[in-house]
Computed example of a mutant assay.
Amino acid sequence: MLSRAAVRALSRKGAVGACGVLGLIHALSATAADVLPGAFTALPVGMSAVQVFQTHVERDKQYVDGHARPIDARLDSDVSMLRYHRLIEVGGYTVDPNIIVPYVELEGKRDLSAFGKESGLGDAVLNAIVWLVNDPKSRTFFGISPYLYVPTGHYEHDQRLNAGENRWKFALQAGYTTALSDKVLFDLTGDVTLFGKNDDFGRARADLEQDEAYQVQSYLRYKLTPAFEAHAGLSHVWGGETKVGGARQGNELRTTKYMLGASYMFGPATQLLAQYGRDISVENGFRESGKFLLRFTQMF
């Protein structure tokens, strides 16, 4: 995943040259808490789950103030993630503490070939979901989910692409899931992300600061069979303007995208989910022309 937070500061002087001034683009998204359908459906206490994610993203345009820059941009990323869950009970509430470990590969192409390639461990994520409403009978759930991003990823201040961000991040998300009918389910989540300071940003080793960013996501899911489910979703991100050396960059995010996909249960404890997504509109940053995601889940 690629940060769009510092991207507008690739500026009107030309993408490659301006990126040299700013120093780098981060591997991880400026918005922390992308979710997949059913993320806030609670599993039974005592159950564990291991999930493996593979995500490939292609970006083909860079936008400034809603206008595409006249460059032949191409920026690709591949992110592999391992996530471990363990459902426990705390004070009568179901809680899902989990950890996410990513490995990131990034490559600039065409007019962005000067960005080069970068790969390495990304920033680890500590997460938990606390369900305040947990009603499997009506298939209605409501939970609160904090994320803590720990700056463990590989980072070099003079590289244009980095697997890590060299800063702490915290996101707080709320999620609601309910059944609209026997076959149709609805998911709605919202979150806010707060950013720590990167005090070693770019070749000038400047301070990078960022305003809070917000995201709303929703899904409709349709059960074609008890094991096979299709979904469609929308996401909107806004906020997150950056400051470099105290100077505001005017690069506030305002991005809308759609997601389409399906999942299949191979027995009661194994699931495979596939999803395709694409940005519909981008105010500042790179447009995701295609996002391909696979997730394997094994519960035990």
Rank of each mutant, 00 (worst) to 15 (best):
F195T: 05
V184M: 09
R12D: 12
A262W: 13
G164K: 08
V35I: 14
S113I: 03
N284A: 01
T55D: 04
L224C: 08
E118Y: 03
A204F: 04
H157P: 10
V79H: 05
M1G: 06
A15D: 01
V35R: 15
T242W: 10
E89L: 09
D111M: 06
A179L: 11
V35K: 14
G250P: 05
H26T: 09
V79M: 08
K197S: 11
V79T: 13
L172I: 11
M1T: 05
A18P: 04
A18H: 00
V104N: 05
T225L: 08
G202K: 02
R86S: 13
D78P: 00
E212V: 04
Q159V: 00
V184H: 04
L253W: 03
Y258H: 06
S11Y: 10
N134Y: 07
K183C: 02
Y219C: 13
A6T: 15
N251I: 00
P136H: 08
H26R: 06
G240M: 12
P44C: 12
R254H: 14
L260Y: 10
T178D: 09
G202S: 05
F53M: 12
G108H: 02
A274Y: 04
G285C: 10
K61F: 01
V90R: 08
Y219N: 13
D76C: 00
P268D: 15
V192L: 08
S218T: 15
A114T: 04
R74K: 15
D65K: 07
V45M: 11
Y264E: 03
G91I: 01
Q298M: 04
L253E: 13
G285K: 02
T255W: 00
L24G: 13
L273F: 04
R248T: 09
Q275E: 15
P70A: 12
G233M: 11
S235Q: 15
R74P: 00
L2K: 06
L194Y: 10
M299R: 11
L36K: 08
E89M: 07
R278Q: 14
A206W: 00
L106E: 11
Q215Y: 01
A32N: 14
G175S: 07
K243L: 14
E283G: 10
A73S: 12
N98Q: 15
L293Y: 03
L194P: 03
G23D: 07
V57N: 04
S77L: 01
A68F: 01
P70F: 02
I129P: 00
R248Q: 03
S218V: 02
R12A: 10
L28P: 03
L75Y: 03
M299T: 08
N98M: 14
Y214K: 12
P146D: 07
L126W: 12
V150I: 15
T140V: 06
F296H: 02
S80R: 06
L28Y: 05
V21S: 09
V282W: 06
V101E: 02
L273A: 12
Q271W: 01
F201A: 11
A32R: 07
M81L: 05
T31D: 11
